Amino acid sequence: MSRSRVKICGITNVDDARAVVDAGADALGLVFYPASPRAVTLEQAREIAFVAGPFTVVTGLFVNAAPEFMAAVLAQVPLQLLQFHGDETPDYCESFQRPYMKAIRMRPELDVAAEIANYPGASGILLDAYRPGIPGGTGETFDWARVPQSPGKPIILAGGLTSANVADAIHTTHVYGVDVSGGVESAPGKKDHGKIMSFINNARLAVY
């Protein structure tokens, strides 16, 4: 039997970070995209990262970030994984010499397998719902039947996940991991600790 890993994204404060770690999440995400209501400063991110402890993967989410900004973040925040949600090229993603995930927004006409193949150096591929002009965090699902069954890369499922549908999502797709942000919030950037626990518990029960 296998289980899907769980990442809780959009952490903005230490209390929520502790709740994520205590609930047993495999990873937590910090958003370095100023337009997001979940964006953190370098000071906030550094404090949260040190709360995470050694066995929770601290992930930084970026959207078409300038190399100078990337360098400033990496110099100050101990990120173990990078997550790119913009139009970043493979060469750009690999230039930071850190493990990375590339997010792919599931446009209706997209050749998913071909897009995954464009990022051979990625540690994993995150599939997210598509809405024009919004690089993630839409709170919407997409057709899970489009998730490739033999992708050649670990697939992380995002988009509209909640404690109510995460088990069904895992049973349907058999993905390596699931990623949630808005689905465990009481308000943008503020996590609901009960929802975090329920989400993780339901994901853990969904073995395949």
Rank of each mutant, 00 (worst) to 15 (best):
R5T: 01
R5V: 03
C9I: 02
G10W: 02
T12C: 10
V14G: 05
V14N: 11
A27K: 02
L30I: 01
S36I: 12
R38T: 00
R38D: 05
E43D: 14
E43W: 10
R46Y: 04
E47I: 11
I48D: 07
A49Q: 02
G53M: 05
F55I: 12
V58S: 04
V58G: 06
T59Y: 05
G60W: 00
V63E: 07
A65T: 11
P67L: 11
A75V: 03
V77N: 08
Q80A: 15
L81S: 06
F84R: 05
H85E: 08
E88Y: 04
D91S: 10
R105V: 04
P108E: 13
Y119Q: 06
G121L: 10
I125M: 03
L126I: 03
D128W: 08
D128T: 06
Y130A: 07
I134P: 11
G136A: 13
G137T: 09
G139T: 09
T141A: 14
D143G: 07
W144M: 08
G152V: 05
I155W: 08
I155L: 12
A158Q: 03
I170W: 07
I170C: 02
I170F: 06
D179H: 12
S181P: 03
S181H: 02
G182N: 01
G182Q: 03
S186T: 09
S186D: 03
P188W: 01
K190G: 07
G194V: 06
M197G: 13
M197D: 15
S198N: 11
N202L: 13
N202W: 07
A203Y: 12
Y208A: 14
Y208Q: 14
